[in-house]
């Protein structure tokens, strides 16, 4: 009886741990970035160009897919709670006035992974939470 309950708990725990991996879009960073998770507020601050440094003061390099890419739409809506057009408005307002750099646009997910792997301080996203060599997945708190 106690053994069965123990097994059941293990199973629930496994499911809980696995659940972030089951959602559609994953947040990826360069392995040099510290930490295993990121808060929703911090992620939104990064992508609206309000936070430009990691907590250890390393500059953040932001990668994005094109505005009409399905993975970008999913990431913007589900992870940031913003429509892609609102993100674009924010980037345009800040970049054309010389106050911030606009995120770096890559053409597809392969390039996204390659650039995040190669760029210290980089953050990006992919449509699946598949584990790749040289890329770290951040859990959304």
């Amino acid at each position: 009886m106690t053994h069965a309950r123990f097994l059941f708990r293990r199973l629930v725990l496994l499911l809980l741990l696995a659940s972030p991996l089951a959602v559609s879009a994953g947040i990826i960073v360069n392995p040099g970035v510290e930490g295993r998770s990121i808060s929703a507020a911090s992620l939104r601050n990064i992508y609206t160009l309000r936070q430009t440094l990691w907590p250890n003061r390393q500059p953040i390099v932001i990668f994005v897919l094109p505005d009409d890419h399905p993975a970008h739409e999913a990431f913007a809506k589900e992870k940031l709670g913003l429509y892609p057009y609102r993100l674009r408005q924010t980037w345009d307002r800040l970049s054309f006035s010389g106050m911030a750099s606009t995120p770096i646009e890559v053409k597809d997910e392969n390039e996204m992974r390659a650039r995040v792997r190669a760029t210290p301080g980089a953050i990006g996203y992919t449509s699946k939470d598949t584990v790749y060599d040289g890329i770290k997945i951040l859990r959304l708190e």
Binding site: Q58, P59, I62, S95, S101, T102, T119, P120, G121, A122
Partner: peptide, 13 residues
């Protein structure tokens, strides 16, 4: 002064 930025240093639009 820190100089750690690994991204592109210039941008044209």
């Amino acid at each position: 002064w820190a100089d750690d930025l690994a991204g592109p240093r210039y941008h044209v639009q």
